[in-house]
Each structure stands twice: as C-alpha cells, then as structure tokens.
Design a protein around this nucleic acid. Structure first.
Length: 380
RNA sequence: UGGGGUAUAGCCAAGCGGUAAGGCAUCAGAUUUUGAUUCUGACAUCUCCCUGGUUCGAACCCAGGUACCCCAG
C-alpha cells in the first residue's frame, strides 16, 4: 500500500486533503510542523499572542490532532524551528536589510515543507508527501510530472510553489487540485470536522497575521529618515526606516495634507537604502511606479530549457493576473523579461512566476528592474 | 507696539448669521498562506485660538486679548 504523509496544519484545507487521500486508498499519516517559536526567536514586539495562555500554534496542533483522530490517522509532530530560521528567516532578514521585499513562504516551501519535511517523511517510510495547497499535479504518459494551476483559480497557490524542483514535485500529491474551496468547506461539514468553519489563515506562514512593521522591528531597528516627493524633490514626511516599506505601498506613510497642494494618497516608488530616504509619488499611476523590463535570478525551471525567446504569462505577486512577458535565458540561473507593456510596482526580492496556459513553468526572484532603458531599483 | 493678513479635527481645507463639506492621514472590517494593492465603514456634538458683546440663533457680526505670517522699518 502506498504510504503518504500529509502536512496537517490544523486548517480545513489539509484536513480535507487528508480525507481525500484516504478515500483514494492511500495509507495516510499526518505530520504537524512547528517552525516558529516566538520566545526562542526573540519575537516580542507587536506579538498579540505572546501573553496568551495557549499560543495559536498549540491551538492549531490541537485542531490537527482532532482532525487526525476523526479521520483515524496517526499524527506526528516535527519541529523545524532551527531549519526555518537558518534557511528561511535568515534569508528573509538579509533581503530586508538590502531594502528588498522577500517572499518567505516560497522559501518555506522550498526548504521546509518540500525538503526537510519530505526527508522526514521518507525516513518514516513514506512514498509521498501531500499538502493542502491548491495546485494540480499532472502526470504525463512519459513519466514527466507537471505542476498546473488548481481548478479553483481563485485559490491557486502555484505561485508559492515556484521554487520547488521536479524531483520534489514528483514526490508530492496535491489532493485539492481538482476541487474548489466551497467544496472543501462542504466536505469538511459533511465529515463534521471541527475545522470546517475555521477562518483561512493568512500572513507569513507560521508567523501569522501581524502588524508587520512591529514584527520586523524585532530584527531590524527603526531608523528615521526623510520621505521625499520623487517629482518635486520636496520633503513631505518622515519614515521609521526604509526597510519597513515596499514599492507601491500606500498605507503607513503618515503623510497628511500639504499647504498649497491638492490632498492625495502617496505611494512608495523608490527606496534609497544607503541614504535612508524613501521616495514617493502622489499619483496612483505615476510613471515612477512602472517598469518594462526585469532581470530574474535564482531560476527554478521545470519545463524544457529553451534558448529562444518565449512569450509567457507572468505573476509578479500572488493573486495577480498573468502579465504577458517575453522571457529569454541569459544563463541557467538568469532570465531577462521584456514586458508586453509597463507593469506597476514590480518589486525586487519578490518572485516572478511563469505560466504557459495553466502550466507553471517555473520562477525566480526579481533582481533588477528597468524602465525605458534605465535601471530603477537602485540609483535614481 | 507702523501697516496688512491668518487663526476650523493629526495634516491640508470648505464655510461669509441658521445650527461644522471634502481630501489626506489614522483606526476597524472585508479580501489575501509574502510584503503590498484593492474594497467597505468609523472619524469635530461642554465644537470652529481665548474672553466678552450683539442676536430668537454666531465658526461666521462687533470689542478686547493671544499666536503666527507678510510688507515696510
């Protein structure tokens, strides 16, 4: 009998995924990962649950235990706190310190859920791991395994899986690939699962929904500086540290009305890390927010390598529509992207993920961005 | 201590005798397994710098203060 270890998070998605696997005839065992320890990791500022008698992760664990009991599967608990810090969080901090905006969850998948956890599962004698991600595994006749967008395009999470390789994909099952979220909730209700109505979790995985700036302050000290209007060069406000902001951001700038000017919303369009200056524009469609070309590094390519330019769909952030781009390999680890038209707020450190139809071809990390021939992510 | 101007929520700013527009910011909620974006809602009620006065009624009129700004010195 094929043995599968499902990552049970204590949420509704993985619970239903576990049920579906069982129904399909697999021998299923659950694995609950714990990757963040607020006390050990010095996570105090802005931590709303620090003083709670039971931290939310323990609540999730209790939920997962109840699900496992109900489904009649064994549940193992694994700590990856050190691995998460070493492979995901230290990278995350490095990126922020460079003034970029990383996506930790993509690296959490690459190094924790689809690597450390996979190894653990293998040691436990499992043939596959499975998760509650919304993504579809497609097995071709020739043995090739492809990863496609989920049937529920609204919940599709292939963006977060863009750094896992073919070998990892081949070792993983995604039971939710062909059903949508409402159906998942429905199944959970039919099974009378305790988590049937549990709210979807958001925020950085394992850390959760938080005041992000306060969270970062635990690791990146505040450093006040000027906010400058990129168009007029006037000082229009003061920030707490350029690291806390990201390109395209509107909230949290604290810029009020300015005498003699029409009151408008301001958007971050450039971060001068060296001089600790935040550049903003007061127009939603300001030219400084756009770019038309990018260099992508850390390429994880799942399809056949091509030297010819390829026109594909590209997401520069989660839940964004596919943007048309022409992709060209510079070398194995570098891709140049020419955009069909200028796109807004493409941000270094974020992932660019490529699609051909529903198939995810791979992805990489946005390294440099250009507009009209000029590099705009560094040096104004 | 000559002249002129302005004082309305955190910031801009309407209002010109009839019972405080709007925007920005902020906060809350929705959306969201990154950071953002987006959407919805809340947000001056011993109140309009202070003290008096006129009036049925004043942020708006009058008088006297106070603060700041500008031009002359």
């Amino acid at each position: 009998m094929t043995k599968v270890m499902i990552g049970l998070s204590g949420g509704v998605d993985s619970a239903v995924a576990a049920y579906l696997l069982k129904k399909q005839g697999y021998e299923v065992v659950g694995g609950f990962m714990r990757n963040w320890d607020a006390i050990a990791n010095g996570d105090f500022l802005g931590n709303p649950t620090l003083n709670d008698s039971c931290c939310p992760q323990e609540k999730d664990y209790e939920d997962a235990k109840e699900v496992a009991k109900k489904l009649g599967i064994e549940l193992l608990r694994i700590d990856f706190i050190k691995e998460y810090w070493d492979y995901v969080f230290s990278y995350f901090l490095e990126e922020y310190n460079k003034g970029r905006t990383p996506n930790p969850d993509i690296f959490c998948n690459k190094y924790i859920k689809f690597d450390a956890f996979l190894k653990f599962a293998r040691d436990q004698g499992c043939d596959f791991i499975a998760t509650g991600h919304y993504a579809k595994r497609v097995d071709k006749e020739d043995g090739v395994v492809e990863l496609h967008k989920a049937y529920d395009l609204n919940k599709d999470q292939t963006y977060f899986l863009s750094q896992i390789n073919n070998e990892q994909i081949a070792s993983c099952l995604f039971p939710l690939g062909d059903i949508d979220k409402p159906k998942v909730r429905e199944i959970a209700k039919e099974l009378n699962l305790n988590v049937a109505d549990k709210k979807d979790s958001t925020g950085v995985c394992f850390i959760g929904e938080r005041n992000f700036k306060e969270f970062l302050k635990n690791y990146i000290p505040a450093n006040k500086g000027k906010i400058i209007d990129i168009n007029s060069n006037e000082v229009v406000g003061e920030h707490d540290g350029v690291m806390y902001y990201t390109i395209g951001q509107r909230k949290g700038l604290g810029i009020g009305g300015i005498s003699g000017r029409e009151p408008r919303s301001w958007f971050v369009c450039y971060k001068d890390v060296k001089n600790n200056i935040l550049y903003v524009a007061d127009e939603k469609e300001d030219e400084h927010l756009f770019s038309d070309r990018a260099i992508i590094k850390n390429i994880n390519w799942l399809a056949e390598r091509t030297n010819d330019p390829l026109h594909v769909g590209c997401k520069f952030r989660y839940r964004q529509q596919d943007n048309g781009v022409t992709l060209k390999f510079i070398d194995d680890d570098t891709i140049e992207l020419i955009f069909d038209e200028p796109y807004k707020a493409v941000t270094t450190g974020q992932a660019a993920v490529f699609y051909m139809g529903t198939r995810m071809l791979g992805g990489g990390i946005i390294e440099e961005i250009y507009y009209k021939g000029k590099r705009i992510d560094i040096k104004k």
